[in-house]
Amino acid sequence: MKPAAFKYIAAESLAQALALKAEYGDEAKWLAGGQSLVPAMNLRVAQPAVLIDLNPIEGMAGLTVKEKPTSEPHALVIKAMTRYRTLERSAEIATHCPLLHETMPHVAHPQIRNRGTLGGNLAHADPASELPAVMMVLNAKFKAQSVRGERWIAARDFFYTLFTTALAADELLTEIAIPLQPDTPTARTRTCFMEIARRRGDYAMMGVAASVTLDANGVCTDAQLGYLNAGDTPILATQAAQSLVGQSISAAQIQAAAAIARDEVQPPGNVHATVAFQRHLATVLTKRTLTTILDFRF
């Protein structure tokens, strides 16, 4: 239960960190919050040759709400080393991104949330984690930087499979940009997050992040349903969501969407929850989140 030997480098600047990663490539791992990497190292599942610690670098944490020209949506920009506890307590996130605010208390335990970072979570790409699914529903974009330059990757193109992302060996996830959807006379968006875990803070057996946009007449113009622990990546139930669009959503339509989502998720099953039970949870949580959104939030 102790890590294998490695070379530790406390990075002093982003430029130095990127140069080191370009030099070492896959032999090196970034150390962000360490709340998934260090247990994997303790268990010797991960044995990186080099750890590049991002914690000493100034200016890699924090969040801002960007005001854009009226034709474009506003965006919440979160730097990658922002810790969960900051997200959980942020008044800006509570105001502007209620889905993320509602999700944060479900992410592990208080001690983990004091260290874990948003960027580290997303780059780790655990499909059982809440935040990748939430980022898919929010249609976030991620900034990847390397010595070669920078590029933006859509959350929906980012997660390849278990613990595997679009990031190249020399790249670092540095920023997360979430488009905001403030109410307008013609579009109101409401969201809800729910999960079921055996114990608060443990990995959920199933979880759902839901977002519904209604126009002035109460007709659904957009719906997003994201599931965690439902496949090799976070899963968007696109057909279930699409079935709600163009409708004044009724209880029967929620029921129908939940039935479609049941077949869209691809849960792995484990000792706590069989595949059939996970699919059942997906059905129930889809109904509950959509009902909550429509009953109380518009």
Binding site: G34, V38, N42, R85, H109, Q111, I112, N114, R115
Partner: peptide
């Protein structure tokens, strides 16, 4: 020693932290 039990919790700059998940 993998961040589940909380027995090793200490305060790191005033914040409760798993000391087994910190180098």
């Amino acid at each position: 020693e993998y961040g589940v039990c909380g027995a090793c919790t200490i305060l790191y700059d005033n914040h409760p932290t798993r000391s087994c998940l910190t180098l």
